[in-house]
Amino acid sequence: MRNFYQIIRPARLAKILDCSERTVWREVKMGRIPPPIQITPGVVGWSDTTVEQILEDRIAGRMVTLMPKPATEMATEKRGPGRPKKTPRTLAGLEADETPKRGGGRPRKSPEEHL
């Protein structure tokens, strides 16, 4: 048993894995990388043995997924509280004489008006 562990911070882990720091957090969220340990408020990291295990799994071709989240749960987390879900506009929701506006709503000129 070791007496101490070296803590690998997110930016350093990104360099080790040759990816961006955002990708590290995305993979944590998807369950491919275990969640970091809290060192102090606002400071997190992974033990060096955990990082070694991540590298060994990737070298061996094992993309370990620890706890996958359903796609619907991940999609709702992105929006944030109080922000309504966008609903697509369909032609069925429009009145008979109303047509969807494109290009800023400015009417197009007919070919005769161009001359």
Rank of each mutant, 00 (worst) to 15 (best):
T40L: 06
T65D: 14
T99K: 05
R83V: 15
P41S: 07
G82K: 10
G103L: 03
R62Y: 11
P88L: 09
K69C: 08
I39Q: 03
T99A: 04
P88G: 06
V64Q: 12
T50C: 01
E95L: 06
V44F: 01
D57A: 06
K69Y: 09
G61T: 06
D57Q: 15
G45M: 00
M74Y: 12
T90G: 07
A96V: 06
I54Y: 00
T49Y: 04
G93E: 15
A71C: 03
S47M: 07
M63K: 13
V51K: 00
G42H: 02
L55T: 06
M67A: 14
I54S: 01
P70D: 09
A96I: 04
T40V: 04
K85W: 05
P70R: 07
R58T: 04
E73A: 14
A96P: 02
T90F: 04
T87E: 08
T99Y: 05
P88Y: 12
T87S: 05
E73C: 04
G42P: 02
G82D: 10
T40C: 02
I37Y: 00
K78D: 05
Q38Y: 00
A96H: 06
T87N: 05
I59N: 09
A71G: 02
A60R: 08
T76G: 02
G61I: 09
A96D: 07
D97R: 03
E98D: 06
G80V: 14
L94R: 11
R89G: 06
L91A: 07
V44C: 02
R102P: 02
Q53L: 10
D97C: 01
M67F: 15
P88F: 08
Q53S: 10
A71M: 10
A71D: 13
T87I: 08
K86S: 14
M74Q: 10
K85D: 05
M74V: 09
P84F: 02
G42Y: 01
E56S: 14
R58F: 03
P100H: 13
P88V: 12
E77S: 15
V43I: 10
L66H: 10
T50N: 00
K78H: 05
R62A: 15
P88D: 07
A71R: 12
P84K: 11
Q38D: 01
A71L: 14
K101L: 11
E52R: 12
T76Y: 05
R62T: 13
P70V: 01
L55Y: 03
G93A: 13
K101N: 12
R62K: 10
K69T: 11
P68R: 15
R89T: 11
G93Q: 14
M63V: 15
T76F: 05
G42I: 00
G61A: 09
G80T: 13
A96R: 09
T50Y: 01
R79I: 15
L55W: 03
R83N: 12
I39D: 01
V44E: 00
V43D: 00
P70Q: 07
R62I: 11
G42N: 06
M67Q: 15
T49C: 03
V43A: 03
